[in-house]
Computed example of a mutant assay.
Amino acid sequence: MRLALYGRPRFVMVVLLAIIVAVFFISLNSGSITISPLEVLRTLIGRGDEQQELVLFQFRLPRMIIALLIGFGLAVSGVILQGLSRNALADPGIMGINAGAGLAVVLFMYLVFESKDVQGLSTMTIPFFAFCGAIITAFLIFMFAWKKGITPIRLILVGIAVAAGIGAVNTILSLKLAGENFMYATIWLTGSLWGTSWTFVIAILPWILILVPYAIMKARYLNVLNLGDTIATGVGVCVELERLKLILASAGLAGACVAAGGGIGFIGLMAPHIARRLVGPKHQVLIPTATLVGALLLLTADLIARNILVRAEIPVGIVISIIGAPYFLYLLMKTKT
């Protein structure tokens, strides 16, 4: 029985990791400048020409690593929110945390860079404001959802309402930006990995390295909270405090990911659900599996986004939305409530 419980998750994670490695190398080969697998390997060990080194080390590698990190972060953020709300339809995008992070950045653009070129904005400034926006939004959701405690259904309904309101404000502010800044904000809010660099990797990496292991450490609390507040309180869990800690962890992950990749949606919805079907609901194995599924989804979506059109690149957020919207409707139709 022990082998059946732990053998399957381990096998699933090994298979997912192998697929990620394969897609990663395919992504390094693909793009407007094609580099063969052999040339990729030669370049990685320092034996490629200058153009190949520039393409791989300055453009493709940081972009691929950013895709992996964002996939990790959004997937874990989604697992936490679905665990707290006990609802498979919860997601940092649907609940407004992504929108809150985006609003903070767009508001900063509007107030400080309204008549200037935002392309010169410090790479470290965007993550800071996105993170602040996500945390503030999480506090607002928690505050509005509080009514002698927090119920899961109230939490998700308040999140959806906050997301709608923030989305409207985002649209208004984006329309007031100057021409080039409007285009930048629009593409960024849609979700795009274009223009990422090693600076963005450095900016997002600490949040992933701290908050993903923290979520795994809190897996047993998520397991207990899934049984209901009464049972969780009965076994000695401080329900509201743990719920607040986990919401803040989810918001921190979502804010860091939005800072690096914009408003990429549906990863936090799809990755936990797929992982749950693969390894079951136990969060000790669900969270690591979801991180791999999220990374694979975003890496594959980015590969499609860069190669679906010959002379142009579409934002990766659009590709994810094309996949995610039908998947969301499918989950909605299967939901019994």
Rank of each mutant, 00 (worst) to 15 (best):
T123F: 13
P206V: 03
F139K: 04
G324Q: 14
W194A: 08
S122L: 15
L292Y: 06
L241Q: 12
S36L: 14
R60P: 04
A130F: 12
R10N: 09
I267M: 13
P288G: 05
P127L: 13
M183G: 12
V118T: 09
F328Q: 11
P152Q: 07
K218W: 01
G167T: 03
T186I: 05
L253I: 00
L173Q: 05
P92V: 07
C132Q: 10
L241P: 09
P213E: 00
F57S: 06
Y214L: 04
V158I: 08
L17E: 06
M333E: 05
A325C: 14
R60I: 00
I323V: 12
G268L: 09
T289Q: 07
G167V: 04
G262K: 14
D117S: 15
S36M: 15
Q82D: 04
L56M: 03
V14G: 11
V316I: 10
G83C: 11
G191S: 14
E313D: 01
G149H: 01
A325T: 13
G268R: 14
W198I: 01
L205K: 07
C257W: 07
I135M: 01
F200R: 12
P272C: 11
S250Y: 02
I45W: 11
R306G: 03
R63T: 01
V106P: 08
L121F: 13
N307H: 04
C238L: 14
I216N: 02
P37M: 12
S85E: 09
L121A: 09
W188G: 13
S77Q: 06
A178E: 08
V201W: 03
S85G: 08
A251V: 02
R154Q: 06
K147P: 02
L225F: 11
G234W: 06
L74A: 10
I314M: 07
M143G: 05
K282H: 07
M333W: 10
V79C: 12
G263P: 13
N223F: 06
R220E: 02
K334P: 11
Y184M: 15
L329H: 10
L121C: 08
A256C: 08
A305H: 05
K218Y: 00
V285Y: 12
K282R: 09
P206C: 03
G294W: 07
T43R: 15
I231M: 06
A4Q: 15
A312M: 07
A259V: 13
R243P: 09
I287S: 02
I135C: 03
P127K: 15
M13G: 08
A271L: 06
L157V: 05
M183Y: 02
D302F: 10
L177N: 05
M95G: 00
R243C: 03
A301Q: 03
I264H: 15
L69Q: 01
G133L: 06
T300I: 00
M1S: 10
N98K: 15
V285A: 12
K245I: 03
V279K: 08
L193V: 00
G179S: 11
A168T: 03
L61V: 05
A312K: 09
I208C: 01
G120A: 09
G31F: 01
L329N: 10
A130M: 12
L173D: 05
K147Y: 03
L16E: 00
K334S: 08
G165V: 02
T43I: 06
I156A: 08
I126F: 15
R277T: 05
V235F: 11
A256Y: 09
I172V: 06
L17I: 06
V23C: 04
A22V: 02
S77L: 04
